[in-house]
Design a protein around this nucleic acid. Sequence first.
DNA 1: GTGTCTGCAAATTATTTGCACGTTG
DNA 2: CAACGTGCAAATAATTTGCAGACAC
Lengths: 138, 138
Amino acid sequence: MQEKIVNSLKEHGLKATPQRVTILSSIDKKGHANIDEIFNDAKVSHPTMSLATVYKNVTSLVEMHLLKELALTNEKSKYEIAKSPHSHLICKKCGHVEDIMLSDPLAENCNRLANSNSFKLEEFELNIYGICKSCLGE
Amino acid sequence: MQEKIVNSLKEHGLKATPQRVTILSSIDKKGHANIDEIFNDAKVSHPTMSLATVYKNVTSLVEMHLLKELALTNEKSKYEIAKSPHSHLICKKCGHVEDIMLSDPLAENCNRLANSNSFKLEEFELNIYGICKSCLGE
DNA sequence: GTGTCTGCAAATTATTTGCACGTTG
DNA sequence: CAACGTGCAAATAATTTGCAGACAC
């Protein structure tokens, strides 16, 4: 698993330092995390990690398309491992973010929307805000 | 026009101060603006306006649902006058944000996505990133 | 008149930077 | 060993707060 991360870093032209591996595996485990969550998580396995290192690395990992930023209403951006397009269910109560697959018709719809406005679509994001299953159950 | 803004403020239980009217009409004219843009714009007609006042007011206007925050990837949040649901074309080159109507099938699609995940949808946002018409023409 | 709002300055929080040293490839 | 990355401390930027005076209603 670490192996995979190390390879991924190298493929993207970044050195595989323990700090980077820690950051990536933390995000991978959590699914989505903001800077503070990454930092606190990383400190457990790597106590000397500095916050500046987290900032610098998250920035370069985003630039190298290994991470993706998820800008959120009312809270700090979260980061996720870059993977195939999907959409998000964001719980307004607990803040949990859940990935969901989006349907082809929906993607098609977005393409049409962009086209009919002479806009060159590069990517789109669909974020659904509300209350998650587990918060509903309480 | 100012009249409308004044009424809107009062209806939402906020005092209609000149600062607030200025902030709202600036956003209304621009369509979408971030804190700095609002501040710089407001200073023209109201030179003594302080940045803290902009922050405080934008916060309360969002709380009172008169404004809506638009969280963006890679740039500061922009604010828009709250109005019926719509989606956004966001230009990665010039930063311009354009509102577009979303189709019923698309909204229906989102409802279904949420339902099938036992998620209580409150609202959703569809942001399309790419290059706008005018930047394409250059 | 009174409670809310403003402007200012100071406090806090968030992010970036410079640099000496350590590590990866 | 060369380039790149780290940790620390200091610098900047962004946002919030406290408070005294001003204004809306």
